[in-house]
Design a binder for these strands. Structure first.
Lengths: 192, 192
DNA sequence: TTAACTGGACGCACCGTTGCGAATTACCGG
DNA sequence: CCGGTAATTCGCAACGGTGCGTCCAGTTAA
């Protein structure tokens, strides 16, 4: 009798090795080529796996990317918001580290790729938030500032975070020359 | 002798008719299918034009889209920021009309398509700003508010606009249930 | 004469699907 | 306990379809 309540399955079991290989290959190709040049056939080749194995378990390119995102195969470590008690300085420092991150060579198209992926699939958009933890880490810091009386109690935290991140995203998409004080200006636009 | 200083060209001249047809077809297909399902072959067929004619004058899909954007073939009329003297109310009204615009049936994927296009081509991102006039119309209103003393004199206007629009974009990408007071909350996140 | 146009064809890449043989794993009757 | 059978996985290979970007031939217009 099966230990679990699930119906007993018959036949070969899913290859964990193949699953890992696919997600790893997706991460590597995503990093080097970006989202839009990512292909199922390319992933299959890189992973040393048959195309059918991918189609059996994932419904689309965006589904694979979403899973790779969850398993942290896609992104380098992302900065967390510091908490020195000075909300403005903390946000500026965090924003600056974000900007430095995407300014590193090899990360040119990172934001672009992530946004493109989010455009294609509703899942990715929401999972991006969860996986990156951006919303979580920033909003807890904001709420702490609200509790400390540094920000008004009725501040719509969710929308504040969205405006902050959205400003960063638009800035990245414009690919303009990065003004050195852009982090400070962006935060000051929100905290005046 | 040619009137202009340019070297006299021989042979047929570029067909303005074909150019207009291409940009018009691009606008129609963009509206109905969105950016990512837009194809050169589809545009050629819709415009009643040979594929070669498109490739002769534009280098890529994004180039065609960028040109269509410039000629105002892509977007419905976009709202302008009112000026009642109350900056907060004006911004909320404007943001609400933006939200209503993309909430209309048929405009579901509009923001998504525009952002996807902006991801693919640097031109489109910057031209989007110019063509929509978003940056211009909002920032003049903001500057008026600054002049009226309703906003601090050292407010980074550019970044303020980016945060506002960016918040709207991220909200659109998430495709979540649109909270009825989202416009008011977004503006309040910036103006507290 | 020269350049732009149409129409059609090409090879290439990738899509998403299907069929096949081989391997793996549970069940079931002897 | 053992061997057969059914179910399910895998890899390999092919299919038709679509769009890409290019090229060529023939026609039309300055």
């Amino acid at each position: 009798m099966p230990a679990s309540a699930g119906v007993r399955r018959r036949g070969a079991v899913r290859s964990e090795e193949a699953r890992i290989a696919v997600l790893g290959a997706t991460g590597r190709l995503f990093a080097t080529q970006g989202y839009d040049h990512l292909t199922i056939e390319g992933i299959a080749a890189e992973a040393g796996v048959s195309k059918q194995t991918i189609y059996r378990w994932w419904s689309s390119k965006s589904a694979v990317v979403a899973d790779a995102l969850i398993e942290d195969k896609l992104l380098p470590d992302h900065p967390v918001v510091p908490d020195t008690g000075d909300i403005r300085a903390d946000l500026i420092a965090w924003m600056q580290s974000l900007i430095d991150l995407v300014a590193q060579p090899g990360n040119d198209g990172l934001v672009r790729s992530l946004v493109a992926a989010a455009c294609e699939s509703p899942d990715i958009g929401t999972r991006l938030n969860d996986a990156l933890g951006i919303t979580a880490t920033v909003s807890t810091r904001i709420e702490a500032a609200v509790a400390a009386g540094q920000l008004p109690a009725d501040l719509p935290v969710m929308e504040f975070v969205r405006a902050l991140v959205g400003g960063f995203v638009l800035h990245s998409l414009e690919r303009s020359e990065p003004a050195p004080d852009i982090a400070e200006r962006l935060v000051r636009a929100l905290l005046h």
